[in-house]
Simulated scan of single mutants.
Amino acid sequence: MTKAEERVDPRGRPLRTLFKRIESRLLLILLAAAAAFSAFFELASDVAEGDTTDIDRQILLSFRNPADLSDPLGPRTLEEALRDITALGGFTVLTIVTVVATLAFLFHRRRMHAAVMAGTVILAQFASSFAKVMYDRPRPDLVSHGSYVYSNSFPSGHSMLSAATYLTLAMLIASLEPTRATKFMAYVLAVAVIVAVGISRVYLGVHWPSDVLGGWAFGAAFSLLAWLVLLKLGARPAPPRG
């Protein structure tokens, strides 16, 4: 081994060990992304064949008053609150989040992070629109819709784009933040919002549960690819602390 190979990074770890760890992380992320895409296409196949119809109906109706299917369970304030939550996965809010996050990264001279953030959301938006047209699944017709809809049902655009946007943002923040608690909080908040948005879509009767699951899988796959790109382009995560 040459002297150059024996050099260490600021934390005292051999560079060769660091490179191996990065390669291992890249492989794990790639496998996770492949698994997410596989889960989406497997679910899409089940949806196309009608295999999810029964469970979709059961879950959707479980959110409704059996005596009046136009009435979601719980008080009207809950229904209104879930309309507010579902807006967190809407085009307007996600566009604002993406623009603000991209500008914030640019202001801090993190051009790669800004490019990954904007690029991931834009690609996910196109993929969502294409998938909706390709699978051409009608919206649920068992109950009245509690929110305005204007596109096909599978996959859920709100679920997919919220997953792609918030998970990517959490990943980018975590890559710059050295404190473990802050990294953890970023991911927890992202997952909480994503899950809440998905549940709100079923509660409001505008999506089948399988639409939401498909959206989560597809969106997570894009976020994992974004993480892969960030690491591949040489962005090293901040060393954990605390």
Rank of each mutant, 00 (worst) to 15 (best):
T77Y: 01
I173P: 07
E80D: 12
A67L: 11
V121E: 00
H207M: 09
V8D: 01
L204K: 15
D84I: 13
L43Y: 04
W216T: 10
Q125N: 15
R139S: 09
E6D: 08
L78M: 08
E177V: 12
E177I: 07
A238K: 05
T102C: 04
R201A: 12
S128M: 06
F218A: 14
F184W: 12
V212M: 05
L18N: 05
G89Q: 07
I173H: 06
F41N: 00
L78G: 03
R16D: 11
R111Y: 12
V202H: 01
A174H: 01
M117A: 12
S70H: 00
A4F: 08
S159N: 07
Y135M: 06
V99W: 05
P138V: 09
R111S: 07
E80V: 11
L30M: 02
A186D: 05
V212Q: 05
D68H: 01
R13W: 06
V191C: 04
L27Y: 12
L73I: 15
I173Y: 14
L204I: 15
L161V: 11
R241C: 09
V193A: 05
Y148C: 00
T17H: 02
P178Q: 03
K183W: 07
A235K: 07
G146L: 13
T95I: 03
V93F: 03
G89E: 00
R13K: 13
I85P: 00
W208I: 14
I173S: 06
W208F: 15
V99E: 01
S156V: 13
G90E: 13
K3L: 13
V149Q: 00
T95Q: 04
A181H: 11
E79F: 08
V229A: 09
A67V: 10
S162T: 15
L225Q: 06
G205E: 01
E42N: 07
L82Y: 07
I85S: 00
H108S: 11
L28H: 08
L28C: 11
S129Q: 05
S129Y: 00
M171K: 02
G12L: 05
E42V: 13
I85K: 03
S147I: 14
V195W: 03
T77K: 04
L73C: 02
P72S: 02
F154P: 02
A33M: 04
L30Y: 06
F218S: 12
F19G: 08
S147A: 15
G214K: 04
S156F: 03
G214A: 11
L230E: 09
L161T: 09
Y166H: 02
T53G: 00
K232H: 09
S162W: 09
P10R: 08
R7T: 15
G242L: 02
G214P: 05
S200A: 15
F222R: 06
P66G: 06
